[in-house]
């Protein structure tokens, strides 16, 4: 039951550490790396507050051992804003459209919506709701979260086109 050497890329930075294989990815991110954007909500794979992006997939970091994530590229909500602090279009849209109240679910919501919009750059409202079905919010009633994601979609697309 010895510790293992893990190497990850988190928000573009190479990370190396010794960790017990049983360490959950969410605990590794928060306690070992001090990346506290992903939250621990239900701890039972339901609420999505711990969602991070791993190798192009939205995953619940509470249901993943750091051993499984060894070698992966991970993006958390901390990795979305630009280097100069300019908010990501999704972050800006959540602020503009009041897509959060207590904010606990927000990092998971935004990280999940980020992957959803990579896969489906102009979703319908129904597709946004279906795509966010793994993230629970107890404050907003979801209405403004959905609005924010729909508002961010064309901005993200315009940014992508401008970059090309």
């Amino acid at each position: 039951m010895s510790k293992m050497h893990v190497k990850l890329t988190v928000n573009g930075k190479a990370v190396e550490a010794l960790a017990e294989p049983r360490t959950l990815l969410i605990h590794f991110l928060r306690e070992e790396l001090g990346i506290t954007g992903p939250h621990i909500g239900c701890e039972s794979s339901h609420c999505g507050a711990c969602t991070v992006d791993m190798g192009g997939r939205s995953v619940k970091a509470c249901t993943m051992f750091v051993a499984q994530a060894n070698g992966a590229e991970i993006t958390t909500v901390e990795g979305l804003a630009a280097a100069d602090g300019t908010l990501h279009p999704l972050q800006e849209a959540f602020r503009e459209h009041h897509g959060l109240q207590c904010g606990y679910c927000t990092p998971g919501m935004i990280t999940r919506a980020y992957r959803l919009l990579q896969e489906n750059p102009s979703p319908t409202e129904a597709e946004v709701r279906f795509g966010l079905a793994g993230n629970l919010c107890r404050c907003t009633g979801y209405q403004n979260i959905v609005k924010a994601v729909l508002a961010a979609a064309p901005v993200m697309q315009a940014q992508k086109e401008a970059a090309e």
Partner: peptide, 9 residues
């Protein structure tokens, strides 16, 4: 089955 995050894994 499940939700989007679970379906990725």
């Amino acid at each position: 089955i499940a939700d989007p995050q679970v379906r990725y894994m």
